[in-house]
């Protein structure tokens, strides 16, 4: 192939790969957001949780592993003091009623934001469902956890503990 031919193909290659390139990664600053709560009319604001370790969990009512993760995330959220660690669910169902029904089946006490437009998954560069982002006290993503399998909660617990210990200056 001639260099000229390759040059002609370059814009095409860029156009085909551009949409799949962005994904929030460890070390990146988490994008701030404000969204309506799934339950009630309150607003869920990420930056109000600054100073705590936050686990942002993207979920949907139709996603089986998300549903499997939620009771375990609920348990995890209660294992640490609420002024140090919080789980924040982000529901991506198109219909709020679906999200509410899912929460009635599997009630959780942690806050859940509703994003029927898919704006937040785009901003986070979500690549799979479910995905959890562990954000440290300064708003930096420290762990991107894709999918959910049995035993994954142990890894999350360990990472949360590590971030809390780091802040307290423990080794």
């Amino acid at each position: 192939m001639t260099p000229r031919f390759l040059r002609a193909l370059l814009p095409l290659a860029v156009a085909l790969t551009a949409s799949a390139s962005f994904a929030l990664d460890e070390g990146d600053r988490a994008p701030d957001f404000q969204a309506r709560s799934v339950v009630g009319d309150a607003e869920v604001v990420l930056h109000e949780m600054r100073g705590k370790v936050v686990l942002v969990d993207f979920w949907a009512s139709w996603c089986a592993p998300c549903n499997a993760a939620m009771p375990q995330l609920e348990k995890l959220s209660k294992e640490f003091p609420s002024d140090q660690f919080v789980v924040l669910g982000v529901n991506v169902d198109k219909k709020l009623a679906d999200a509410r029904r899912a929460l009635e089946k599997r009630p959780v006490t942690y806050p859940n934001a509703s994003d029927p437009t898919g704006m937040l998954p785009k901003r986070f560069g979500l690549q799979t469902m479910p995905t959890s982002y562990l954000i440290d006290q300064d708003g930096v993503v420290r762990l991107v956890h894709r999918g959910f399998r049995n035993g994954d909660i142990d890894e999350l617990r360990e990472q949360v503990q590590k971030l809390l210990d780091k802040k307290k200056g423990r080794p």
Binding site: S19, F58, A60, S61, W62, C63, A64, V92, D93, K94, G118, P121, K122, L126, Q127, T128, M129
Partner: peptide, 13 residues
């Protein structure tokens, strides 16, 4: 057509 992960509600039925 590319379907984003968060838009797979119908495919998951």
């Amino acid at each position: 057509q590319h379907v984003d992960p968060w838009e797979r509600n119908l495919l998951a039925r």
